[in-house]
Every structure is written in C-alpha cells, then in structure tokens.
Simulated scan of single mutants.
Amino acid sequence: MQNKPDSFSIKSWDRDDRPREKLRLKGRSALSNAELIAIILGSGSSRESALSLAKKILAAADNNLNSLGKLSLAKLMAFHGVGEAKAVSIAAALELGRRRNGEDRPDRFRVQNSASAYNYLRPTLGELAHEEFWVLYLNNSNRVLKQEQLSKGGITGTLVDIRLALKFALELHATAIILAHNHPSGTLVPSEADKQLTAKFKLAAGSMDIKLLDHLIVTEKDYYSFADEGLL
C-alpha cells in the first residue's frame, strides 16, 4: 500500500500558505474563494487536500459563487471527501452570504424607478429555484416600509391572496405597493395569469386609495417591469 503524499495534508504546508493561518495573519480578503471553501471543508480526503477539493468543487460551478450556491446537497456530496456535514456547511455559508447581501440595503430604501426596485429585490428573489411572490409596501415618499413574502410555490407558479396583501398594506399605512415574483426558468415574458393578477391587484388596491406602482418579474440577471412596458 502506498503512503499518502505529504502534500495532501495542509499541515505540511508553510504556515503562511495554510488557509486558516493566512486568514488570521493577513485578513479574510487575502484568501481566494477556494481557500475560504477549504476552511469550511476543514479537511480533504485520502486523495487530496481540502484546498484541492475546494478547487474541484468551484470548477464544477464554473468558479462562480452564485452557481455554487445553487448546487444541491446531493451534487456536493458527489465529490469524494464531501459528506453530508460538509455539504450542509457549504450550503449554509453561501446562504449566509446571500442574506448578508440582502441586508446591506439601507433602512427605508427609496424606490426611484424599476431598476432601483429590482436592485432591492434581486438578493431575495434572483437565485431561487422555485417561484415566490413578494410585495414591497411604500410610504408617500416611495420609501420601503416593509417587504413581505405573500406566497411560495413550485417551479412554475404560486397562489396569491390579494386580500392578505392589502390587509398588510392597511396595517402598515402604506400608500403604494410594488408586486414582484421570480421566474426560475429565466424567462422575462409575463404569462396571461401574471397579467390578470396584476389587473386584479390594481383594481383592488385602487379602491383603497393604494397605488400599484409596478409589478416586476425578477431573474438573477434581469427583470421585466409592467410599468415600463405600459401594462399598468
């Protein structure tokens, strides 16, 4: 039986090159994505170091963290040396990063146009593999009072309760709302159901002096605005 090469063990590396020591001595920004993932992994396998394994995992996601965040636990566990605990750790770390990105938005963000609304909503909706429907509740200055998930569905659709959405609007004393849902398929073409729902929302909200400013279809890289397209 052959002995494992010493290079498989990070402990055999120069101290300055070990990911944990490098982070402690030089700061987190000095580490590559692979080195950060190696720290999450904690160890590699009998065949390779944690860093080598991290590089393979990243390569499978085209070295893109957004793509990596979409890999299922099963796909992560397909790598030799990645069990359920390591796969869960990677998924949890990437989800924290996604949520942190969403929390970087300032309180009472002011929506100026469809692009600013999209930038506000993209961290929440852009990467989802299933469809969700959200509402932004705004005050007189178009500042966000609250964002609320109205429903969560499957890959192709979700059910929406207009009465519940307007109940929240009245409780928040909102004067305007923006609707938003994602299309996991990546298409930005509104369905007939999308158009009908938007029309119902506009009519119901208008009867309560609440203005429907827009309805956005959100994907990871782009959006569709009902207002910009003259459909409101």
Rank of each mutant, 00 (worst) to 15 (best):
L212E: 01
D104A: 05
V144I: 02
I40L: 10
P184Y: 05
G206V: 02
V135R: 02
L31Q: 05
V189D: 10
S45K: 08
S185M: 04
L172R: 11
L170K: 11
L51D: 07
E35M: 04
V160E: 06
R98Y: 00
A91L: 11
K200Q: 15
I162N: 09
G27K: 10
F168L: 09
L166V: 13
L166Y: 12
G81H: 13
A117G: 00
G97E: 02
F168Y: 15
L65I: 07
Y223S: 00
N101Y: 05
Y120K: 02
L136E: 04
G186H: 07
L25M: 14
S32D: 06
D222A: 13
S45D: 09
V111A: 00
D209Y: 06
H215G: 00
L53F: 13
S9Y: 03
A193D: 10
L188A: 04
L73V: 14
P123Y: 08
V111H: 00
L164H: 13
A92S: 15
L213N: 03
G42D: 00
L150F: 01
G154V: 00
H80N: 13
M1P: 11
R24A: 12
A74D: 13
E192K: 14
A38I: 01
G69H: 10
L68A: 12
A165F: 06
K211M: 02
Q149K: 10
L58I: 03
L166D: 04
A193R: 15
G42W: 05
L73S: 14
M77P: 01
A193W: 09
L125E: 01
K152D: 05
A205H: 09
R99N: 07
A50L: 09
K211L: 01
V160M: 04
I10F: 02
L172W: 08
I39L: 08
L164M: 13
G102H: 07
Q149R: 12
K22D: 04
T187F: 02
G186V: 06
N33F: 08
L128V: 05
D6M: 13
A169S: 10
L58H: 11
F226Y: 10
F201V: 02
L213V: 02
K146L: 09
A61Y: 15
N66T: 08
L31W: 07
L188G: 04
R18C: 07
A129W: 00
F109I: 00
E21F: 05
A61S: 15
D107H: 12
A50D: 09
A93H: 03
V189N: 11
A169T: 08
M1G: 15
V189L: 06
T198I: 02
F109M: 01
R18W: 05
